[in-house]
Amino acid sequence: MATRTDLSAPVATRATAPAPPAPSRRRGVNWRRVGNRAWTGLVIAVLLVITIYPLFWMFASSLKTENEFITEPLWSLPRELNFQNYVDAWELGGIGTVIRNSLLVTLPSLFFILALGAAAGFALEVMVWKGRNTVLLLIVGGMMLPLQLILLPLFTIYFRLGLTDSLLPLILTYVGHGLPLTVFLMAAYFRAVPRELFEASTLDGAGVFRAFFSVGLPMVRNGLLTLGLLMFFSVWNDLLIALTFNTSKELSTIQVGLLNFNGEYGSTLYGPLFAGICTTVLGILVVYVFINKQIMKGLAAGSLKG
């Protein structure tokens, strides 16, 4: 496990280390540079095709009619924009239901992971008491425990408590499983806040909770945002937990719903299947367009953790 000094405070992304321009000859066309440019262009083009083509193909396929799937090769473009598949996916696959379920699971999980994680990080880093390092180590050690180990006993617990017919098992498991990383990073973020700020707030007569809400939380808000994104994607895209505790079609999340939809109709109804996949991908794309800068920044800040 990483020692405490390993995780440096979050750092802002810095400017690229500038490399000197390629040596240029004075006269005539610089063929070497032209060649380099061409190579660069080629690599970029290949990267773009590799990344975008599967997604483009998926979108194009979602607009095709059943007839076009049978009579024309799969790589061909749709003849016209036909959104019937989306209507079918919505009705047959219950895409609306699975998106609602995913939201109902992800948002509360996210809230509790961040709230409990931030409070614990504060208690373990800013508060002064004997044994806090041991407790931190105990919680952080949980990062080493794979999910497989906890699934079966948890199933027994939820079954005995009669929770299996709800989304609660998912939320509880995500919160418990998300906490080790969250507490670890929150403690690191709080460590980066100058201690004088907290001391000054107590001199002004603020209590612990005032110091937490009015001084601590605002100081770590970037860290909270980064962690929130990380946890959002890991909960939203989880399959193992969702599949284990899923008991009925009405309670499926997006990942499980797509899997069921494919099992039921995947070999025959290509169009609606592609439309279903497309809907979930487009949803994420919209989110991603707005927050990708924050993701990159967060990765830069957390990249040194062991």
Partner: peptide, 22 residues
């Protein structure tokens, strides 16, 4: 910052969830 009650309130829920789930 050494207030035991405050520590329990802040740390308790997370520690409980972690213990129960993991």
């Amino acid at each position: 910052f050494g207030d035991k009650k405050a520590i329990a309130i802040l740390l308790g829920p997370a520690l409980f969830m972690y213990t129960a789930i993991m």
